[in-house]
Design a protein around this nucleic acid. Structure first.
Lengths: 105, 105
DNA sequence: ATCGCTTATCGTCGATTAACGATAAATGAA
DNA sequence: TTCATTTATCGTTAATCGACGATAAGCGAT
């Protein structure tokens, strides 16, 4: 079996930051929607959530800051999509953290 | 109309709540320590962190509220350990979320 | 140039977070 | 009982979050 690799503090900060992005039910919802739909406008997301447009916009900003989401202006609207690079870095890190087993003493 | 969630909103709230517990580097560090050491006193955790005892105690409280950690009083000290039930519920949920691929349209 | 649509930002409010020192509570030991 | 140790809690301060309405900014179409 492998020993648990030591985690760099960069990775800890990254993990914490992404988790912060996921630390609200509305943002979980938004991320899941973007994972399946590939690209959504803010307005479309607002339709699917019981929140005001400004609130959704704010959640999208937090998701962007966490690195999970990117937004591209297209004409009068903005298309949001998941940043797969962040997901692909995050997934193995959180997986490794959760898979740690106690040392046999 | 709201998105039709393939995920129960209970699960979304659970995911968000656990992520909230992980949304700070110190708590990532603490959880990691508890995953490997199985059981730690607050004082032992304080030794490994650049934070005051009261701050570490506060982080432990947040981790308990997120369900990730349990604490048991043993004499004058408290032993903290990971709640594996929470981890075992969280792991497949976050994994499933991150594994979603865009629908072929 | 103006209108209409879409989205970001501003301002506000109450609640929460994060950090610390100080202190209280609980327990084991002397 | 008294003392030392350990941890939780209180009080404080600054910062951030979460929600909203209102408004500004950008763009396409008329």
């Amino acid at each position: 079996m492998f020993f648990n690799p030591p985690m760099h503090s960069d990775d800890e900060a990254f993990l914490a930051n992404v988790c912060k992005g996921l630390a609200h039910p509305a943002r979980i919802r938004i991320l899941r929607q973007l994972m399946t739909e590939h690209s959504c406008t803010c307005g479309h997301l607002v339709e699917g959530l019981p929140l005001a447009q400004s609130t959704v916009s704010q959640h999208l900003k937090i998701l962007k800051e966490s690195g999970l989401v990117r937004g591209e202006v297209e004409g009068p609207r903005t298309c949001y999509c998941v940043d797969r690079e962040t997901v692909n870095r995050f997934a193995p890190l959180i997986r490794a953290l959760l898979a740690i087993t106690p040392e046999a003493s």
